[in-house]
């Protein structure tokens, strides 16, 4: 039933994030293979958008590079489809709502399912606005992953628990991706409040940029997402694919080592 069951069976899960199409889709494809090799349990692929409200400068710039390289939503889906049967790690698309709405919700759900996408995260589509879309995804067999934040009120946590599919993405700070403010200071209370209402696995993400922070976060939940820190490597070594893959692999392996129970 749970498409991500396996990912959380082997202990704390590592969920690396890269922006699809940064610097080009061919590199992203190689990154997925490298990340799987390094022990990633679920891989998140960002779908670039011109106006990413929840992202900090690092992922904004990655999206800009991807768009300048001509990346489109259909291009991303096609790349994922090409990985079907090649990787066994579940792939999750993370992207803003407008490109999906523009593509057509039904068509997107169908094509995502067909490409082998396991889950979809849409940060600007809360469950109340996304009732139709999340329903369509479910019918196609793709999990709509919901998010919660440190300040989420109990009534929203209850609703999230009732609707959650796959896992729930807990934002680990009050802010945007890649923010260096440090994780939420009452993290234990926060995760306890979420666990009271949510039974699917929980992952923490936003601002987790080092093996140390990953270990700290992983102690509380079932998995951690690391995005900006990996995207920064793509920014730095994107012109040299071999070097990039080595850097990302070794960073992912260090993260994986740090979060082992």
């Amino acid at each position: 039933m749970n498409r991500f069951g396996k990912a959380f069976e082997k202990g704390r899960a590592l969920l690396p994030f890269v922006t699809a199409g940064d610097p080009d889709l061919e590199t992203t494809r190689s990154l997925v293979l490298a990340l799987e090799e390094a022990g990633a349990d679920i891989i998140e692929l960002g779908v670039p958008f011109s106006d990413p409200q929840a992202d900090g400068p690092v992922i904004q710039a990655a999206g800009q590079r991807a768009l300048e390289a001509g990346t489109t939503l259909s291009g991303v889906l096609e790349m994922v489809r090409s990985l079907r049967g090649v990787v066994s790690t579940p792939l999750v698309l993370m992207g803003y709502y407008n490109p999906i709405l523009n593509y057509g919700e039904d068509r997107f759900a169908r094509d995502a399912a067909e490409a082998g996408v396991a889950g979809v995260i849409v940060p600007d589509l809360p469950f109340d606005e996304g009732e139709d879309f999340y329903g369509v995804l479910e019918r196609e067999g793709v999990d709509g992953i919901l998010m919660v934040a440190p300040n989420s009120e109990e009534k929203r946590l209850i609703e999230t628990g009732r609707r959650a599919k796959g896992f729930v993405y807990c934002v680990s700070l009050m802010g945007i991706t890649g923010q260096e403010s440090g994780l939420y200071d009452r993290m234990g209370d926060y995760i306890d409040r979420v666990k009271k209402h949510v039974t699917v696995p929980l992952v923490l993400g936003f601002g987790i940029d080092s093996p140390e922070r990953a270990a700290k976060a992983a102690a509380l939940v079932d998995g951690v997402v690391v995005g900006s820190a990996i995207v920064r490597l793509v920014e730095r070594f994107g012109h040299d694919r071999k070097r990039l893959l080595n850097e990302v692999k070794s960073f992912a392996a260090r993260l994986k080592g740090a979060i082992k129970p």
Partner: peptide, 15 residues
């Protein structure tokens, strides 16, 4: 219309 925002903003919009 509607309210297409990240969860972090919900409490403020409701307040």
């Amino acid at each position: 219309g509607g309210r297409f925002v990240p969860e972090t903003l919900f409490p403020a919009l409701e307040e």
